[in-house]
Design a protein around this nucleic acid. Structure first.
Length: 886
RNA sequence: GGGCAGUUAGCUCAGUUGGUUAGAGCACCUCGUUUACACCGAGGGGGUCAAAGGUUCGAAUCCUUUACUGCCCACCA
């Protein structure tokens, strides 16, 4: 017989348990296979960790992700799948470089990149990335993540670099990667391009200026950015606009606009122009606005770049403006307009500012020579495992991305995100993949004079210079499901684990990452990257606000782990959390689950005291009493429903079911009954054994600790077999009804006690008129006596109420408690009257329903039958209540 | 402007295909230390399921409209 300490202290055990798991080697599926833990018929289950950015530490959102993924991994592993959860980190190019620059500037290096140079600067970044990586790994372990560290990958390591170069070369050869001079999103602070979806919009109040280019120009325009008008080459009006239509096709020469540039303005017709906004006319600046750029393409307009990569005006804007910052130039142009009496109006309007999602700086659209992935170009997909596309078919990247979700080869959970996904793809434009930063995969392109060489390896001959740009970080993370499994080498891992089974990630990176993995994998392998996508929401504070340093509402997972334990932290992130929805988290919630881990600990503590010889090898024990039968069936049903919910990705529901079984059924009822019925060693052992397995994926630490306290440390719970159903699920109705009656009688007596303010120490005498339930109640009378705290209990088929007794009616039987002198009988009568009132109303309702001819005609027989039963029961209760009130 | 969610007890949320008198946890109130657990036990109060209309024998659940909240996309220059 073992005895556990009174309270569970997670801090004492967690680190040691993780070490034991790690040393066992069973995070690695190869070792599970060798040890015979794998059920060949189940196949494999694989999942990659969405690699956290090496920009710092993990936050509570990561903790939520880890909790969900570890839950699934442990469930699958115990169920016999060859289970791989593959960890890694992401170099997060711009984000990491920006962060390190900031840190270096704080250290006093004013212009880190220029002062240190590429090599030294990159060494600093790598040092920082390594430190971040170590912290992240440590945090994953603190959460209990059962990842296979032996397969850990980094988006910027050599193996991944080979994959990146190989894919780049393949795409270039297929004509899908091209270099072009096009309008891109430029962040003047990061000094780099950004992809379309890396641009965010922030609402602000802007000044809208209305003016004419010159005094004799026929049409006025309105703009929030007058300085860009120095690069205008057209003026667009709606062809349906009677005021302006006559000018379409005409060209005007504007001399010395803004005191700087001569403009050639062509009037063009564009149906997208809103006649009611501003003056109904738009000055077209092809080089610095995406929509204007498109108009320029359609109308074959000249594209004049007047803002450069540093956010300064170019000489095209005129000598006066050369080298002037954009904002200063704006002020100068406005000043000039005023001086020349051209400014007609100046007003404030709400406006969306485009900003860089990494640094928040205003984006400057400008034309630039960059590398792009063409999403609309046709190519031949040599080997296709995609339903609806045959090997050798001509496809586009867009088509591939659509097809795998349309044909349900990839299922997105919750499915409403499929709409979002399709909408995004339909509007997808070519993807700019070159970045002018240093930390990242260098573009595998070399130049020698006019020659270009694209290859996996550098050219063999002399005199070549490699492109100085690096690739968008999502280019490499797009390869993540297969680059981590060894591609381009033809590895066993690829064969066993790809396509992966599940991708679990946040809905906020559906486009950034999920869509790009689909693009890259379908293109490169002709396969889907994963079968299911489970999208989780954001973790917010208790008021639903985003957690942020400035609000001071950040919950750090390491803090809650230190205070309440990793299990409590995990439960607080798993329960009450549904796919695609944000989760509100508070300290109190974690605390509540800490209480639950302690409850489980104490349940085990009690059970162990009653299990003289715990046996690891459990068989279904024999049920000796009604409640034995009941609890075993409840356990079986719970297992059945937990399986269904876990398989259906309803993690919260599964946990909730387990909680109800553990606390409400087992602890509050069965264990109390076991104290009375005695000698339950075998059943308790069976229940505890099963229960620990079921809880393990949710709270691995406390379950593992209890397990080792019971069975020693030789056997690890993590690799125990998931329990099997021992019979057809669904409780036998008779057992359910009988146990419910007994529990209701006990609860009823407790209620009378409580309402009449009788202390629990005072034992009472009770009389039960059992009717047809005589035998049942007699055989369980000890339970009723003990749990309702009765001195004497008399059970007969008929009972008559004495004048000093109060009573209640439950499921066709009558219960009377002799309360001579203790109770205010009048008050008790009041209570009964109230109950009678409510049951009379209830009966009227059912009668009304049953007497309704249409109900009788239309409702299914089973429903009618149920209603009739309810009515009979209620009527019986009413009769008895009436008698009691007399 | 387009789209997607949500609105159920003071708070956080369940409520599967319409069919018990709408549930749980926390909080609140009352009582309690009967030894697994006060990180606990027993009991209780609290909801016209956002509003209106409709379909139906029957609606928290399906449909329509409205209001509010949140998010995503596009973008007005």
């Amino acid at each position: 017989m073992k005895e556990l300490p009174k309270a569970y202290e997670p801090q004492k055990y967690e680190d040691n348990i993780y070490k034991r798991w790690e040393e066992s080697g069973f995070f690695n599926p190869d070792n599970c296979k060798k040890a015979g833990f794998i059920d060949e018929s189940k196949g494999s289950f694989s999942m990659v960790l969405p690699p956290p950015n090496v920009t710092g530490t993990l936050h509570i959102g990561h903790a939520s992700m880890l909790a969900i993924e570890d839950l699934v991994t442990r469930y699958k592993r115990m169920s016999g799948f060859e289970t791989l959860w593959l960890p890694g980190t992401d170099h997060a190019a711009i984000a990491t470089q920006t962060k390190v620059e900031k840190l270096l500037i704080e250290k006093g290096i004013k212009d880190p990149k220029n002062e240190l140079g590429r090599e030294k600067f990159l060494a600093e970044v790598e040092k920082f990335a390594q430190e971040s990586h170590d912290t992240i790994v440590d945090q994953c372990k603190k959460m209990g993540s059962s990842m296979d560290w032996s397969r850990e990958a980094y988006t910027l390591d050599d193996a991944r670099n080979l994959a990146v170069r190989t894919v780049f070369k393949k795409m270039y050869d297929d004509g899908l990667i091209y270099r072009g001079y096009r309008l891109v999103n430029w962040c003047p602070r990061c000094k780099s391009t950004l992809a379309d979806d890396e641009v965010e919009h922030k609402e602000q109040i802007a000044k809208l200026y209305t003016f004419k280019y010159s005094a004799d120009f026929p049409i006025a325009i309105a703009t929030t950015r007058p300085e860009t008008k120095l690069g205008d080459t057209a003026l667009a009006v709606n062809p349906a606009d009677e005021r302006y239509a006559k000018y379409i096709g005409q060209e005007f020469l504007v001399k010395n606009f803004g005191g700087g540039a001569d403009l050639k303005i062509k009037i063009i017709g564009e149906e997208s122009i809103d006649m009611n906004f501003g003056t109904g006319a738009l000055g077209v600046t092809p080089a610095h606005s995406a929509t204007d750029y498109e108009m320029a393409q359609r109308n074959k307009l000249e594209i004049i770049k007047i803002i450069d990569e540093d956010g300064l005006m170019t000489k095209e804007a005129g000598e006066k403006y050369l080298g002037t910052a954009v904002k200063a130039a704006r002020a100068q142009v406005v000043e000039w307009l005023k001086e020349n009496n051209l400014l007609e109006k100046e007003e404030e309007i709400p406006n969306n500012l485009s900003i860089c999602y990494r640094c928040g700086y205003a984006i400057e659209p400008l034309p630039s020579r960059q590398w792009f992935v063409d999403v609309n170009k046709e190519f031949v997909l040599a080997n296709s495992a995609i339903e609806g596309i045959k090997s050798g078919d001509k496809v586009t990247l867009k088509k591939l991305m659509q097809q795998v979700v349309t044909n349900k080869q990839i299922e997105i959970i919750p499915d409403r995100f499929e709409k979002t996904y399709f909408h995004w793809i339909n509007n997808l434009r070519d993807w700019c993949i070159s970045r002018q930063i240093w930390y990242g995969h260098r573009i595998p392109v070399w130049y020698k004079n006019e020659e270009i060489f694209v290859g996996v390896e550098a050219p063999a001959t002399e005199g070549w210079t490699q492109d100085s740009d690096t690739l968008d970080t999502w280019f490499s993370s797009g390869l993540w499901t297969f680059s981590t499994l060894g591609w381009p080498n033809n590895t066993a891992d690829l064969k066993t684990f790809h396509p992966t089974s599940l991708l679990e990630t946040g809905y906020d990176i559906l486009f950034f990452w999920v869509a790009r993995m689909i693009l890259m994998t379908t293109y490169t392998l002709g396969q889907i990257p994963f079968e299911k996508v489970y999208l989780h929401g954001l973790v917010r504070d208790e008021k639903g606000r985003k957690m942020s340093k400035s609000l001071g509402n950040v919950i750090n997972p390491l803090d809650t782990i230190a205070e309440f334990g990793a299990d409590a932290t995990r439960l607080s992130l798993l329960l009450g959390n549904t796919p695609g929805n944000d989760l509100k988290l508070s300290q109190e919630k974690v605390e509540g689950f800490r209480n639950f881990t302690n409850k489980l600990w104490n349940i085990s503590r009690f059970m162990l005291l009653n299990i003289p010889e715990p046996k690891l090898d459990v068989k279904l024990p024999e049920a000796k009493t009604l409640f034995d039968e009941w609890i075993l069936q409840q356990l079986n049903d719970t297992l059945n429903q937990v399986n269904a919910n876990l398989d259906g990705y309803h993690f919260s529901a599964a946990g909730e079911l387990l909680r109800v079984f553990t606390w409400d059924l087992l602890a509050d009822w069965y264990l109390e009954i076991a104290k009375i019925e005695g000698d339950k060693s075998e059943i308790l052992n069976y229940i505890l054994n099963t229960l620990l397995k079921l809880w393990h994926p949710f709270m691995p630490f406390v379950t593992e600790q209890i397990w080792s306290e019971i069975y020693g440390t030789d056997k690890i719970l993590m690799v125990e077999k998931w329990p099997q159903l021992h019979r057809e699920p669904f409780l036998e109705e008779q057992i359910f009804a009988d146990t419910k009656l007994i529990r209701d009688i006990i609860a009823g007596i407790r209620m009378l006690r409580s309402e009449n303010k009788i202390e629990p120490v005072k034992k009472l005498n009770a009389l039960i008129g059992a009717g047809t339930k005589l035998e049942l109640l007699q055989s369980n009378s000890e339970i009723i006596k003990a749990l309702a705290r009765l001195e004497n209990l008399e059970i007969s088929s008929q009972a008559t109420k004495s004048t000093t007794a109060v009573g209640f009616v439950e499921g066709g039987i009558e219960v009377f408690i002799d309360l001579a002198g203790v109770v205010d009988m009048e008050k008790e009568k009041e209570r009964l009257k109230k109950e009678l009132e409510s049951i009379t109303k209830y009966i009227a309702g059912i009668e009304g329903k049953l007497n309704n001819a249409e109900f009788a005609q239309n409702a299914p027989a089973s429903v009618i039958e149920k209603e009739k039963e309810k009515l009979a029961e209620a009527q019986e209760k009413m009769v008895k209540l009436k008698k009691q009130i007399q």
